[in-house]
Design a binder for these strands. Sequence first.
DNA 1: CACTGTACTGGAATGGATTCCGGGAGCTCA
DNA 2: TGAGCTCCCGGAATCCATTCCAGTACAGTG
Lengths: 358, 358
Amino acid sequence: MSPRAARSSRPPDEPLAPATSLADRAGMRQVADRAGVAMSSVSRVLSGHPDVSEAMRARVMAAVEELGYEPNMLAQMLRRGATQTVGFVVGDISNPLLAQIALGAEVALREAGYAMLLTNSVNEANLDATHIRLFQQRRVDGLLLSVADETSEDTIATLGRIPKPSVLIDRDLDLDEPASAVLSDHQTGMTQAVEHLVGLGHRRLALVAGSPHVRPTRERVAAIEEAAAAHRGVLCQVRSGAFTETHGAAATRELLDSRRPPTAVIAGGNQILVGVLRELARRELRVPDDISVVTCDDVPLAEFLSPALATIRRDPYEMGTTAAQLLLARLGGGEPQTVTLPATFSAAGSCAPPRRDA
Amino acid sequence: MSPRAARSSRPPDEPLAPATSLADRAGMRQVADRAGVAMSSVSRVLSGHPDVSEAMRARVMAAVEELGYEPNMLAQMLRRGATQTVGFVVGDISNPLLAQIALGAEVALREAGYAMLLTNSVNEANLDATHIRLFQQRRVDGLLLSVADETSEDTIATLGRIPKPSVLIDRDLDLDEPASAVLSDHQTGMTQAVEHLVGLGHRRLALVAGSPHVRPTRERVAAIEEAAAAHRGVLCQVRSGAFTETHGAAATRELLDSRRPPTAVIAGGNQILVGVLRELARRELRVPDDISVVTCDDVPLAEFLSPALATIRRDPYEMGTTAAQLLLARLGGGEPQTVTLPATFSAAGSCAPPRRDA
DNA sequence: CACTGTACTGGAATGGATTCCGGGAGCTCA
DNA sequence: TGAGCTCCCGGAATCCATTCCAGTACAGTG
């Protein structure tokens, strides 16, 4: 410590354990006293303000070191009006797709100094709005939204009342203020799948889709219908419902019991896939001999199923990082943007020509 | 409004849009002014303090309604010293097991009024400590910990310096202050698996385990060795390593190339399983004819693999809710507790008697 | 009537840090 | 030597709600 330190109005007498490991943490006040300067000076040093002499910086840093001072983020948040926190409203983090998105987003946000709050709406539309309000109360700086129902008036109204930037993740809400969005090009992926199936000779396709209140379902439905219509004699049936195993199984049952059952079925989600496969197994139908199967979005072991599962795939981790980047851009003052990421079909053994007698 | 309202020092003149949807939110100060009372009274009404007259309550509530006032949680947090927030340090949320735990924990915490911050250590031990410090700075009320490395000095020291309650999730850290913990009874599950395999005739078992720096691995290794030792002539090889596909594949390769290759292999984690299966597929080994396979922890499609995968299973969602409950108990002033939840083996087609010539 | 409660209520300190503003010190240049 | 500047620094207001403390008014009681 320099001799000048003697100038201090309060000489550094008490040794004070460097890191007072207890709850009685030192505040900026204590630092200022110990260094014999004003709090404003401490603040300036710590925030890298230019109007600070080298001597001052040294004195303050020494005091900070000695006291093991760490700024109270709550006070900073209150004063600055920014929390360096973003909220992620997700339907269900246990869905691998969303978990990957969350991972990508969290990593990118953290590197930029933001923390991520997470809530699961458990696919209940009314919880979406509740959680958005909850985040608002906690004064998050921005939102990442993968809401369960785009049409919920409550959600839309609540969102409209929030002046914070938000990024929609494969969702399409009718908001007054435009929001950023990361979308998937379901159209292309689905079209490729249909072309592949039709190429194999299929004429009766089915899509067991999730809720029509979210963009992926609508896009997939629109895409399969359009793609089917492009071929003479190709029919397609669509069964929308919940993103659940139950719906997957029930819809499959209906389809197979219908007058002209499909020879190929596309599952519109992880849970749905489980339902579809379960129903097929129950009827002892073999894939792909009796029926071809395609699924949307990767599942961990899909490659080891025999036959391997054909998949309309996208990169959820990248969706997450992209969403984070869009949000950071807006937090930095940028304009809302929309980014569309690819979804592509990869063929596999679960697709084969239909049975002759089908 | 009652006639007495005329007493107000500042009559409610300006209509003021009920919900000023902009950023210029009304504070408690405005509410107090409009109601013609002191801020302390507003606070009392809002916090349900008993010393409040009916008239006062009505006046204040009216003003609150008119201004669309919502308390600023940041100010509350600062003043109260509690953030109603808990931090969850997780290795990798994209791991289905952890995602389920997170889901269970988040739902339970939210119902109790807590929000959950999430960070992914991406299985890097040094990030664990960093994230714990990060949460400390954000003044979380408690921590949920599924750290990547229990032996990290940095992690232990950092944790020791934090006076906040924490709950270990299937981890066993050497802390000064005892912490609550939710553990899995790997011992039982693993023993059951070994008994089953031995019963089928297997004499050479292998465990492709994850990092020995986390409890699940250590417990599983200890259990398999003990269970094997209980039978004459039953050998078991263990290959610990990272929780990655790469390690899974590499370890499997080593095992199969060894002098006396195992006739049954147990994969100690989701990623490891993928590596194991990939290596088996590469060698065109058939399950269970050429080799039996067991995995730890459920994976979504495991039931549809053919043959279906035998699994040492536990209920991750319940682990999450239990962890949340333990934390809430501590936040409510209770003592640290340890809860052990079951892990049980379910047999399936992937296990069969070994080949004669093995 | 004086006294003790009781039931509320207002004022001010508090929790920590940020930031605007004013002013002193020292230097330059006329 | 004095005006004008730059460079730094301290003081005080501010962010917003909580809570302790003191005090008022009114009812009840001896």
